[in-house]
């Protein structure tokens, strides 16, 4: 009886190892929190943050996951780098206290509080977004998610796209409303490499 129990335990151990939460480090070269805002009710301005870091944890068996994303606000980039005839670029303005206030709040963070799964993959990520010193709940819908297995020297890599909407006035960022819309659409493209 003891031998059978021991054999059963031996058989279970590998599956238990697979079921353990797996940790991934965000790949900053393939992870970009993007955003869009409406400008004067005419067009849509796209922007993104170029510097970010964080961790992702997934336990597929338990269907649980977590994500922490740290974004450097000074890396905001709307593609407006040439001053032309102006004194300052739009990106310089976005870094000031009128918007992201990068000197006072160099980072914004997103920390998940609950991740819902559809099948084996995350489908909805609920979390707290902290921006310009204010923390508010945000819901992100995962549009796609996939993991590529390790091959050769490459470690396992998971990633996907998630979208959501926020009102920037909820975070006290009221400058320019309504000419620059209050509603901001978030599009987060994320890749993470297994530790």
């Amino acid at each position: 009886m003891t031998k059978r129990l021991f054999a059963l335990l031996l058989a279970i151990v590998p599956f238990a190892a697979i079921a353990a939460p797996e940790t991934y480090t965000i790949d900053p070269y393939h992870t970009f929190p993007n955003f869009t805002v409406d400008h004067l009710g005419i067009s849509t301005i796209y922007g993104r943050f170029n510097k970010n870091s964080g961790k992702v944890t997934i336990d597929r068996a338990a269907k649980t996951a977590s994500i922490e994303l740290n974004i450097e606000t000074a890396s905001v980039d709307t593609g407006d780098v040439e001053k032309g005839g102006r004194a300052r670029t739009r990106d310089e303005h976005l870094r000031t206290a009128d918007f992201f206030n990068a000197a006072e709040f160099p980072r914004m963070t997103f920390k998940s509080t609950k991740v819902a799964f559809s099948g084996d993959n995350p489908s909805v990520i609920e979390g707290d977004l902290t921006m310009v010193g204010v923390t508010k709940p945000v819901s992100l819908t995962v549009d796609r998610f996939k993991c590529n297995p390790a091959s050769g020297n490459n470690k396992e890599r998971c990633g996907g796209n998630a979208t959501g909407k926020i009102k920037r006035s909820d975070f006290g960022m009221k400058f320019g409303i309504p000419n620059l819309s209050d509603e901001v659409t978030l599009l987060i493209m994320l890749e993470a490499v297994k530790d």
Binding site: A87, R88, T89, T96, A97, D98
Partner: peptide, 8 residues
């Protein structure tokens, strides 16, 4: 200030 990017 506005030449320094702050409209506020």
């Amino acid at each position: 200030a506005v030449l320094s990017a702050s409209i506020g």
